[in-house]
Simulated scan of single mutants.
Amino acid sequence: MVVREKFEHDLRDVQEQFLALSKLAISTLNNSIDALLSHDVDTALSIIENDYHINRREEEINDRVILLLAKQQPVATDLRRLIVMLKAAHDMERVGDYAVNIAKEAIRLGKADFVAPIKNIEEMRTRTINMLTEVMKAFIEEDIVEARKIAELDDHVDQLYGQTIQQLLHVGTENPQMLSQVTQLSFVCRYLERSADHATNIAEQLFYLVKGKHYELNN
Score class of each variant (00 low, 15 high):
residue 71 K to W: 04
residue 146 E to Y: 11
residue 44 A to T: 08
residue 96 G to M: 12
residue 187 F to C: 04
residue 13 D to L: 08
residue 113 D to P: 13
residue 43 T to I: 10
residue 217 L to H: 11
residue 110 G to E: 06
residue 199 A to H: 06
residue 171 V to A: 08
residue 70 A to D: 06
residue 154 D to T: 02
residue 78 D to R: 12
residue 147 A to K: 05
residue 127 R to P: 00
residue 185 L to V: 12
residue 140 I to C: 00
residue 115 V to K: 13
residue 174 E to F: 11
residue 200 T to D: 10
residue 203 A to G: 06
residue 192 L to K: 06
residue 76 A to I: 09
residue 55 N to P: 07
residue 100 V to I: 07
residue 171 V to Q: 09
residue 203 A to F: 13
residue 96 G to D: 06
residue 127 R to N: 03
residue 178 M to P: 00
residue 121 I to V: 13
residue 122 E to D: 07
residue 57 R to Q: 15
residue 84 V to P: 06
residue 141 E to C: 00
residue 132 L to K: 02
residue 137 K to E: 07
residue 217 L to M: 09
residue 138 A to K: 01
residue 83 I to S: 13
residue 98 Y to E: 15
residue 47 I to E: 02
residue 181 Q to F: 05
residue 177 Q to V: 09
residue 75 V to S: 06
residue 171 V to W: 11
residue 92 M to F: 15
residue 160 L to H: 08
residue 39 H to F: 14
residue 80 R to M: 10
residue 208 Y to S: 08
residue 176 P to Q: 09
residue 41 V to D: 05
residue 194 R to T: 04
residue 79 L to N: 02
residue 100 V to K: 14
residue 21 L to P: 07
residue 35 A to H: 02
residue 85 M to D: 04
residue 146 E to I: 13
residue 154 D to W: 02
residue 39 H to S: 15
residue 127 R to W: 00
residue 168 L to G: 05
residue 79 L to R: 05
residue 86 L to I: 12
residue 119 K to A: 14
residue 214 H to E: 13
residue 117 P to M: 01
residue 123 E to C: 04
residue 40 D to R: 04
residue 160 L to R: 04
residue 128 T to L: 04
residue 108 R to L: 15
residue 90 H to K: 07
residue 96 G to F: 12
residue 190 R to K: 15
residue 164 T to A: 11
residue 4 R to W: 00
residue 176 P to W: 03
residue 132 L to Q: 02
residue 163 Q to P: 06
residue 30 N to D: 13
residue 48 I to K: 14
residue 177 Q to K: 15
residue 129 I to C: 01
residue 177 Q to I: 09
residue 153 L to Q: 07
residue 48 I to Q: 12
residue 55 N to W: 12
residue 73 Q to D: 03
residue 208 Y to W: 13
residue 39 H to K: 11
residue 63 D to N: 11
residue 26 I to S: 00
residue 90 H to W: 15
